[in-house]
């Protein structure tokens, strides 16, 4: 679970941390990805594991479009930039939830009989549920790829440079909108990947995103803004904390542990674990 939080959070960290834009619709991106997976499975019998790359690609396009249609203008605001971003993406989240209710109805749906759903695997006497294990593997691979992408390619450098100084970047011929649209696409693709895998073992319904979005924000902040590695590490920590809290407190209180750890960390280190901003 922690690794999947890490993956959701890494997508958000890319948008939130690297581009310094708040995305309050991140949970709804996740919701869309889960629906996409569900319908690919229900109508075309494509297993979620095969659907994952398709969903990620679709979300990539979706993320880029959201940037070009909405966020681009929100970032242009000279006054109250933060609030404009929060509420334009929050409005988008409400629209997406409304659309999901309209087209998909508020029913709970789930993917049944997928290749790995509900099966467990035994490694050295420890039983592990297969979907979560696969999720963890996918998350690790995706994260390593992302890490190299950000730190070793021209695009990654362009992204960071654009956040630092958009004006100077324009002088050397980098189109800010193109870089950020790609960044948004990439962030959305990561959450698409996470959504495809989570559809295997979670119910899909219009409000599903909300429950994960808050944890994703906390995870990004816990890891520290501007650090994708931090988000991933914090994701693992959050998963562990959640599991431990569930052992001590009633299950309905399991998120309290995560929130308490966040507060504890920022009171001691106001910039999160690995934050640079």
């Amino acid at each position: 679970m922690g690794l999947l939080y890490g993956l959701i959070a890494a997508g958000l960290a890319l948008i939130f941390g690297l581009m310094d834009v708040v995305n309050f619709a991140h949970g709804e991106f996740l919701m869309i990805a889960m629906y996409a997976t569900f319908f690919l499975f229900a109508f075309f019998a494509i297993d979620p594991l095969l659907a994952a790359p398709l969903v990620a690609a679709a979300l990539f396009v979706f993320g880029a479009v959201v940037y070009l249609l909405i966020v681009r203008f929100a970032m242009r605001a000279k006054a109250n930039a933060g609030m404009v971003q929060i509420f334009s993406t929050f409005g988008l989240a409400i629209v997406m939830r409304g659309l999901a209710q309209f087209f998909f109805t508020p029913d709970y749906r789930s993917v049944t009989n997928s290749w790995v759903g509900g099966k467990t695997i035994s490694i050295a006497g420890i039983y592990l549920p297969e979907p979560q294990l696969i999720g963890a593997l996918v998350a690790i691979v995706a994260f390593v790829a992302l890490y190299f992408f950000i730190n070793r390619t021209d695009f990654g450098r362009a992204l960071e440079a654009t956040r630092e100084d958009a004006g100077a970047v324009a002088l050397v011929g980098i189109d800010k909108n193109r870089v950020f649209a790609l960044g948004w696409g990439l962030g959305a693709a990561l959450v698409g990947l996470a959504g495809a895998i989570m559809a295997i073992f979670f119910y899909v319904y219009p409000d599903v995103g909300a429950s994960f979005a808050l944890i994703a924000y906390v995870t990004v902040a816990l890891g520290g803004f501007g650090s994708v590695f931090g988000a991933f590490a914090a994701g693992i920590l959050v998963g562990l904390v959640e599991a431990t809290t569930a052992l001590i407190l009633p299950p309905s209180l399991k998120s309290v542990g995560i929130y308490a750890v966040y507060l504890l960390v920022v009171f001691i280190r106001p910039r999160g674990l690995f934050g640079s901003m």
Binding site: G91, V95, M96, R97, G98, L99
Partner: peptide
Amino acid sequence: GVDLIVYGALIVAIS
């Protein structure tokens, strides 16, 4: 959820 769609779009537009 039609009300949500209208309401959300309004928030996006004004902000």
